[in-house]
């Protein structure tokens, strides 16, 4: 025992290195597998307040383009208002419908931190537990999907961007409804890849890709992008499709966090499927 202690003491440099290294790797693995990072992330107090101060200052630079975007969205929404429709259906009665129940709620949030140039990209938003945000909620922008909420602190949350190696979104070709799995290969922040699309799909360049109803996170028919090119890799039996993403990840400033009121019910039901593991 004494010899062992002397040995460790004599080589303390090496053992201290091992100790610190394994602690760091432990933190990495815990974060990767359980999504519970505790205090070391940008949703914590000091770093997030630094980040929001920084964004507050730099926001002014893009006011004009953000205004344009908002104006466009207002115009699009206004054209959907009931007042912009002519009511020529005078003969039927309007029914005050109780058969529909609200499934999705959109919570507006501001991006205080964002990256697009790393293999695994994250955003930080200024909404958190106090505003009712929970992890695994979907995040969308006015132009398309953005990511999934990962960690939540009192007033901030971090979002795993679609530009991440763990991204798997159930994507559907809007035209004919065939679906595949969308992943990001880490090279281009404007492009993603769909695999597993059946070969009888009638594809064309420019086809719209949206989220499918199979996704438990995203609402159905949220825009993802447009088909840029497609082909069958040798040895595979399905299409590999390159998609140009509609979300402009470099310009994101305001996004919407989506709450699905029926998510837990559906999740619970599907977890009950015995052999579906």
């Amino acid at each position: 025992m004494k010899n062992l202690l002397t040995f460790i003491y004599r080589n303390y440099f090496f053992f201290l290195f091992l100790l610190l290294e394994f602690f760091a790797l432990y933190l990495v693995s815990r974060n990767n597998f359980y999504h519970r990072a505790g205090f070391v992330n940008s949703a914590n107090g000091l770093v997030s307040s630094l980040n929001s101060t920084y964004t507050n200052a730099t926001d002014y630079l893009s006011l004009k383009s953000q205004n344009d975007l908002l104006a466009k969205e207002v115009a699009a929404l206004r054209s959907k208002l009931i007042t912009s429709y002519i009511d020529y259906n005078v003969k039927t009665q309007k029914i005050n419908d109780t058969a529909f129940k609200q499934q999705y709620e959109f919570i507006e949030a501001k991006v205080v931190d964002n990256s697009t140039n790393r293999r695994n990209n994250y955003l930080t938003l200024n909404r958190g537990k106090k505003q009712g945000i929970e992890s695994d909620m979907a995040v969308v922008s006015s132009t398309g999907i953005v990511g999934v909420v990962e960690q939540v602190s009192d007033n901030f949350c971090t979002v795993m961007s679609v530009l991440h190696k763990e991204t798997h979104v159930n994507a559907k070709i809007k035209k004919d409804g065939n679906f595949g799995s969308l992943t990001w290969d880490g090279t281009d922040y404007q492009a993603a890849t769909i695999t597993g699309l059946p070969t009888h799909t009638k594809l064309a360049k420019g086809d719209t890709v949206v989220t499918s109803a199979y996704s438990i996170t995203y609402p159905e028919n949220i825009l993802i992008g447009v088909v840029e090119s497609f082909g069958i890799k040798s040895g595979e039996t399905s299409f590999t499709v390159k998609v140009k993403l509609c979300t402009e990840f470099k310009k994101l400033e305001y996004v919407y966090i989506v709450r699905n009121f029926f998510k837990n019910e559906r999740k619970k039901l599907e977890e009950g499927n015995k052999y579906d593991k």
Binding site: A24, V28, N31, N41, S42, R118
Partner: peptide, 13 residues
């Protein structure tokens, strides 16, 4: 640095 990059432990290691 990890705190800013959301990469817990990677930079530390």
């Amino acid at each position: 640095v990890d705190m800013f990059y959301n990469t817990v432990g990677v930079n530390a290691a």
